[in-house]
Simulated scan of single mutants.
Amino acid sequence: MTHQTLYDAVGGEAFFTDLVREFYDRIWADEVVRPMYPQDDRAGAEERFRRFLEQYWGGPTTYSEQRGHPRLRMRHAAFPIDPDARDRWLACMHGALDALDPAPLHRAELDDYFERAATAMLNRNPLFR
């Protein structure tokens, strides 16, 4: 019995290309999180994020081959990620997932990962300034 990855189950590269495009359309409209993204390299940022997600969900390992270990917390440490920024990021991702409407079981798995990952990136607490 072979195990089907989520990458294959949702449609592979096409799904993740669409997801990242939908996500970045929302990011670019948000005044809080947009400044955290490379303003002059949206295409590059989209490609890196897509490759990361593809690899995470069982697709090609191109991300690590090109960029090494993801080191997400280290790569995001320079950005002020407080609960508001996390919530806005998640709203952008939830909107992108809403637009693509993956099967409920796949949606639940994606939502769970994005919730945990976004929370793990928190590095500012507005209560302790």
Rank of each mutant, 00 (worst) to 15 (best):
G58V: 04
A29I: 12
A103K: 03
T61C: 11
Q66D: 08
T119R: 10
E115T: 07
M93P: 05
F15E: 08
P104G: 00
T17G: 13
R21Y: 12
H76Q: 06
G44S: 07
A43M: 08
P83W: 00
Q39L: 14
E109F: 01
M74W: 06
L53H: 03
R26V: 12
P35A: 08
R51W: 05
I27N: 02
D40R: 11
P102D: 00
A78F: 11
A45R: 03
P83F: 04
F79S: 07
F79K: 08
E115D: 13
D30F: 09
H3E: 15
D8S: 14
P38K: 04
Q4L: 14
W28C: 15
F128L: 15
P83C: 04
R71L: 14
N125L: 13
L105H: 02
G12H: 08
A91G: 03
E13T: 14
Q66C: 09
F23C: 13
D30K: 11
L110E: 00
F79W: 06
F79I: 12
Q4S: 12
R67E: 01
T5K: 02
E54G: 12
D8R: 13
Y24M: 13
M74Y: 06
P102H: 00
D18Q: 15
E65H: 05
S64V: 07
R107I: 02
P80A: 10
E54V: 06
T62Q: 09
S64L: 07
T62S: 11
Y37R: 03
Y63E: 00
D25I: 10
I27F: 08
F52D: 02
L127W: 07
R129A: 14
L97F: 01
R88N: 03
V10L: 10
I81E: 01
R42F: 10
P126N: 02
T61E: 10
L72N: 02
W57K: 04
R124S: 09
R116N: 03
A120W: 01
L100C: 04
G59R: 01
D40V: 12
A108V: 07
E22S: 14
L122M: 12
D87E: 05
R51P: 06
D18V: 13
M1A: 15
T17V: 14
Y63S: 03
W57I: 09
A108K: 04
T2I: 15
A118E: 01
P70C: 04
H3R: 15
E46P: 09
H106C: 00
P70N: 01
R50S: 03
A9G: 13
R34P: 12
G59P: 10
